[in-house]
């Protein structure tokens, strides 16, 4: 590994490693929030589709029910994946950066250094509010691709992290 960056002042071995971090899981209730949101949306779409096919005369019932069946099957599949994927989702706050991990089949780990954060917000959706949960959004400059959203945090936790971040960002600017 030392051959990677020849002139680096310290060897790569000594750098803090993202891979060794202890991930903080999301709040248990978030799984329910997530699934309720998923089912509400998917069943809503299914309802509109069924209403439409009953409204249009002569829509072949075979097509209607096979599409509805496929939709239902996909919904169940997504539910299982979300359920299994929940334990992967997690965040970590290190001394200099904030990280978020997600994805069962397609895993991603995103790290945003505090020095590159423009601002952060705590948000609360309708369903999240029923469970006392919040999401923390962290914004960077430029496009939205590198922005980070950590859902499923207890309101107090989200506020605490947000305050910690703004203190960090402010401290950086003063120096």
């Amino acid at each position: 590994m030392n051959t990677l960056f020849q002139n680096a002042q310290l060897s790569i071995e000594e750098l803090p490693r993202v891979a060794e971090v202890d991930w903080q899981g999301l709040d248990r209730a978030y799984l329910r929030v997530d699934l309720i949101g998923l089912w509400l949306f998917r069943l809503g779409v299914l309802g509109v589709f069924l209403a439409y096919t009953f409204f249009v005369e002569g829509f072949p019932p075979v097509v209607r029910w096979s599409i509805a069946g496929l939709w239902g099957f996909l919904l169940l599949l997504t539910t299982v994946l979300r359920y299994l994927g929940f334990r992967i989702k997690g965040y970590a706050v290190r001394q200099h950066d904030l990280m978020y991990r997600r994805g069962l089949l397609f895993r991603s780990v995103t790290v945003v250094p505090f020095t590159r954060i423009q601002h952060s917000e705590v948000e609360q959706g309708v369903i999240e509010r029923q469970f006392g949960l919040s999401s923390l959004s962290v914004f960077t400059a430029g496009g939205s691709q590198s922005d980070l959203v950590i859902p499923g945090l207890k309101r107090e936790d989200a506020e605490r992290i947000r305050n910690f971040l703004s203190q960090k960002v402010a401290a950086d600017e003063e120096e």
Partner: peptide, 28 residues
């Protein structure tokens, strides 16, 4: 760089591979 992302599909995980995305304020 203002944010780093490592992605791994199930296929990549089996083979110990990963894709890296580096974002700057002007492009990635």
């Amino acid at each position: 760089v203002q944010s780093v992302r490592i992605r791994q599909s199930f296929f990549q995980r089996r083979r110990d591979l990963a894709s890296v995305e580096l974002y700057t304020a002007g492009g990635s």
